[in-house]
Design a protein around this nucleic acid. Structure first.
Lengths: 303, 303
DNA sequence: GGATTGGATTGATGATGATCAAATTCAGGC
DNA sequence: GCCTGAATTTGATCATCATCAATCCAATCC
């Protein structure tokens, strides 16, 4: 099943293919399949060897992990995004399952071809590095979110993020079932329901899948959003795609913190060092030492 | 301060520099600093711009995250390992702080030089991709560990992993303070203490920092270790280093699941599909659909 | 030695989250 | 319109975990 031109362009616009040669792109997409899957299809099981890189072109996909008959959602993806790239790169078994939440169009790219391309085209392996670095940082955020915050706080921040991503209007719609959201936030559906009830006291109005944040300031006082945890602006994806299917030259990106960074277009940061409505706060418990490196040593050269 | 030859070779042996040219390696290590830091030194603060890739040559380093006056440790590193590579690659702000737990020797490599090298030497950006992929998967494991298991289970699995990594003897020593372990496992020191007390009932004997697993089978019945969460064998690091400072040719690694994989030397796996003392279990709740992709469509080509 | 310090442990209590059960709402299907 | 099944909500109860407080212990420092 061949891709429509539109789809090719959307794939071409992915950060992963930013700056790669037409040959490489051709080689990688040559043996690709574009498939449509119904909702609820398991694309890949935890522990399975991974033969393809998946690209979600349309629909909704959940990545989940299992242990001891329990399962948890690690991420919910929307188009356009790639998934299980790390396993593909290493030619390793999947650490998580992937399943469609809605009917989805998914492009499958040969892992073999990708690994070959990475060793051939330096631009591609460079793009791959940036892609993975972005994914890595996404997970760091998730882990911090999970370990440092309580359920209601996670929900509050989720809602704030959604509001921003959906355009910033007072009212928006949850992108999927609450049951799935609960799993993503690391709680049971019952507790999610109660967490919503709690947020009612902070100006949040729930109406089925419709959420209204009536008093954002109040909610933020509870949520304490933090740019080092919450990625309000979507990481890359279509932001990188130019209508022409080209993307910014690597030179521009490599320059010191200028232009749109690959992972995140650097949310508007205030003057000087400020970087969020909610600063990390001055009160930090003082650890044993907190000194900058001792006066730089006789700074010689090595290697 | 110039590196000793031994140190240069240890750095050269890192997976990150596997297969890179001497020129690239030289360019990257040219402006490097080797510094010794006392215990408890904060090398890097959350939110700071990252100018260096750090390489821990000796000592112990903790990576931690903070929010709302609470902190949690995301990883504890031992030599030889690199850290905050993702932030360096993207030239982004650090998402976590790094501090020495013990007196440490740390090599600092210029981020600028590394990013330049990634765009110059395809072998290097390829190695970087594999490195990041390994780190990514490490975090997936952590997140699953955190979301799916309870405190006692996390501890039990931690102990089992330590036993294996330290050689498999019945008795071993905790590599650092329990306070730090508690934070790593996502619990309070008090609860860690109680979790240890609980494990006493499963054949675990605690004597200060000395831990004895008297009845591994019993403990494993509680812990239910899983290769998709627990990485019993250390990921890469010195495993890759050849005494000569060279490492396996990429060709060997790229081949389908043979030879020592870069992330993990593929723990001894049983026959057929088995891969761990504790299988993921047959009982899996049946989701809506669990089918393999529908009969492959008219499988055309795209791109 | 004796005092001091910080880590580790233990106990008591409260908060948070999970589980079980039942009621309720909602979307389709007939 | 009514039925049915699933999602969601609510209530009650239990398990887990955090917090506060006090104690114990070992290392260190005069």
């Amino acid at each position: 099943m061949s891709m429509r031109v539109v789809d090719v362009e959307r794939v071409r616009g992915l950060p992963l293919f930013c700056g790669v040669s037409e040959e490489t792109f051709g080689a990688v997409t040559a043996g690709a399949f574009l498939q449509k899957f119904p909702a609820g299809t398991t694309l890949l099981h935890e522990g399975d060897p991974v033969d393809f890189l998946y690209v979600l072109l349309d629909g909704l996909v959940e990545l989940e992990g299992t242990w001891n008959d329990k399962e948890t959602t690690l991420a919910v993806l929307r188009p356009v995004s790639t998934f299980i790239f790390a396993a593909v790169a290493l030619d390793a078994d999947a650490l998580m399952s992937a399943r469609t939440v809605e009917r989805s169009d998914i492009l499958m790219l040969s892992g073999e071809a990708l690994r070959r391309a990475m060793q051939t085209d330096p631009r591609f392996s460079y793009a791959a590095t940036l892609e993975l670095a972005g994914c890595y940082r996404g997970l760091v955020r998730s882990l911090k979110n999970q370990k440092l915050r309580g359920g209601a706080e996670r929900l509050a921040n989720y809602l704030i993020t959604q509001r921003v991503r959906q355009g910033g209007a007072e009212t928006f719609t949850l992108p999927h079932e609450k049951r799935l959201l609960a799993s993503l936030l690391g709680m049971t559906p019952e507790n999610l329901s109660r967490a919503f009830a709690t947020l009612t006291g902070y100006g949040v109005v729930i109406n089925g899948p419709e959420v209204t944040i009536a008093r954002p300031v109040v909610l933020e006082r509870l949520a304490k959003p933090d740019p080092l945890i919450d990625n309000h602006h979507p990481p890359a994806s279509r932001l990188w795609a130019r209508p022409s299917g080209k993307c910014g030259p690597p030179a521009a990106r490599a320059s010191r913190r200028t232009g749109p960074g690959c992972e995140c277009p650097r949310p508007v940061r205030g003057p000087a060092h400020g970087r969020w409505p909610c600063p990390s706060g001055p009160g930090r418990s003082a650890p044993p030492t907190d000194a900058k490196p001792p006066p730089r040593p006789s700074a010689g050269r090595a290697g």
